[in-house]
Simulated scan of single mutants.
Amino acid sequence: MAVPTAQGPGHSPSVPGPGALADNLLAPLASESYVHQRDQGRTPAEITDALTHLAHGVLTLDAGPGGP
Rank of each mutant, 00 (worst) to 15 (best):
M1C: 14
A2P: 06
A2M: 13
V3E: 02
V3H: 04
V3P: 05
V3S: 04
P4K: 09
P4F: 00
T5K: 06
T5V: 07
A6H: 15
A6S: 13
A6G: 14
A6C: 09
A6Q: 15
A6N: 13
Q7M: 09
Q7K: 08
G8R: 03
G10M: 02
S12V: 01
P13C: 07
P13N: 05
P13L: 00
S14R: 13
V15M: 06
P16W: 06
G17L: 06
G17V: 01
G17T: 07
G17A: 07
G19H: 11
G19R: 01
L21Q: 01
D23A: 10
L25E: 02
L25N: 04
L25S: 10
L25C: 12
L26P: 10
L26S: 08
A27P: 04
P28S: 09
P28Y: 06
L29Q: 10
A30K: 12
A30E: 00
A30D: 09
S31K: 09
E32P: 00
E32F: 03
S33K: 13
S33W: 03
Y34P: 02
Y34L: 08
V35T: 13
H36Q: 13
H36T: 14
Q37I: 06
R38Q: 11
D39V: 15
D39N: 14
D39Y: 09
Q40K: 10
G41W: 02
R42M: 10
T43C: 02
T43D: 00
P44Q: 00
P44V: 06
E46V: 04
I47Y: 09
T48I: 15
T48P: 13
T48W: 12
T48A: 14
T48Q: 10
A50T: 09
L51Y: 00
T52W: 11
H53P: 10
H53G: 11
H53D: 09
L54H: 13
L54E: 11
A55P: 05
H56W: 08
V58T: 13
V58R: 07
L59R: 11
L59Y: 08
L59T: 12
T60I: 09
L61N: 11
A63V: 12
A63W: 13
G64L: 11
P65K: 15
G66F: 04
G66E: 05
P68Q: 15
